[in-house]
Design a protein around this nucleic acid. Structure first.
Lengths: 224, 224
DNA sequence: CGCCGAGTTGACAATGATCAAGACCTGTGG
DNA sequence: CCACAGGTCTTGATCATTGTCAACTCGGCG
């Protein structure tokens, strides 16, 4: 999952399920904290997240971390480049994944339907990453957090009592590493949104949208 | 072109030329400042840069700009998503481009060889963008500029008198919008590198690498 | 020669990072 | 069921990096 402009829905979730019957590999399960693959690993499978959340990470030698994307249900993770993974993939919760053999995609012997869907997913991935660049390069801390909440809501938000609410299945540190901020800054922005009654926090890992319009304005910088 | 870690060569340039004979469309020429396409345009062609440089841009309503990537000779630009372009594409110099019909790629009627190369290019694009995330999210201004010079050198650098030298075909503002900085900061970092004898500036648009090792150390943060 | 845009440099401000302390969950064991 | 321990989260104080605003220089071109 990447963060997009408020007015652009993230549509990875709209993808039709991959045709599992054509290449039935058993579902993989992963406990929170476990790694599915690491940067540099040879790619033999790609995975569609069925349930739970994963993160795609890159590390710098000195420990700085950037989360490239979160993998939510419906997302495809593990795009190869020259046969290798270019990120770590870590489970943030109990995760279920549907694996697909890479051989079914990258050569002429594979399934054309699967290959076409894979191509489509890769192009969506590129478009989503392009949106995310704008955020990392040009948006303020408040804009980033607001954009993140809106994007997450578009993917996994629920209606309850006429209010949108969204779970944050990841830690503040994960959010910070995704947005290019520190945990302290993420925490401060959330507190500020809470104090200004734009959101409410229902426990640490659930956000209720009190004034969605204000949040949208914040995300796009229209509040000035 | 994206900026990668210093130790990872940008390899888009290694791609075999696309088989132009299979779908011979005439080369497109574009003057500096002209737009090849804009965000939202329907995608009918994708293009391989033959000569010159283009930039792929995204804009925020308030004018903030992020350059997603520079398109250097060999690079493929115009990846579609749901049939639309998701960035503007602007020529930064006189540019020559080889167009390809999108119909040859996205459906079963297309050329399999071309489609495979397109797939490969898309996956390389994803990997390159992942590298760039680390820079925008986690690197300091000096690290970004140093990384940028090294990445550009890997693509278009020349040897002369035993020294590497690289042209900067874009303005300081373009570099800033690519790196998520301001023109002033880019200028200051370049001045500082010049004063510390890491680089020399041979005119505004040419950099000579005096101490490449120091530049590499700077790019990866090893200088501390 | 003078103009004009791009680039550079300086002074200052602001945003977000860092460092530190305290509060709050959550799981474990008595 | 409660107490404790360890991590996560929040909040405050301070600092550093980078952005902003402004002045000035440089280089190309009429």
């Amino acid at each position: 999952m990447y963060v997009t402009n408020a007015n652009q829905a993230v549509d990875m979730a709209d993808f039709a399920q991959f045709p599992t019957e054509t290449c039935a590999l058993p579902e993989t399960r992963l406990a929170a904290g476990a790694h599915l693959f690491r940067e540099g690993d040879a790619v033999t499978r790609i995975y569609q997240v069925v349930a739970g959340v994963v993160s795609l990470n890159r590390l710098l030698e000195d420990g700085r971390r950037q989360i490239i994307a979160f993998g939510l249900p419906g997302d495809l993770v593990g795009f190869p480049c020259d046969g290798r993974h270019h990120t770590d993939c870590e489970a943030l919760s109990l995760v279920r994944l549907q694996p697909f053999r890479i051989t079914q995609i990258d050569c002429a012997t594979g399934d054309p339907v699967l290959r076409a869907r894979f191509m489509e997913a890769a192009l969506h991935e590129i478009a989503a990453m392009q949106d995310h660049f704008m955020m990392l390069g040009r948006k303020s801390a408040a804009e980033r957090v607001a954009s993140f909440l809106i994007a997450l809501d578009a993917r996994t938000g629920q209606d309850r009592d006429g209010q949108r609410r969204v779970d944050l299945p990841m830690s503040r540190a994960d959010i910070a590493d995704f947005l290019g901020l520190t945990t302290e800054t993420v925490s401060r922005v959330l507190s500020q949104l809470r104090k200004s009654r734009v959101i409410a926090l229902d426990g640490i890992h659930r956000v209720v949208f009190l004034r969605p319009a204000a949040l949208r304005a914040l995300a796009t910088g229209d509040c000035d």
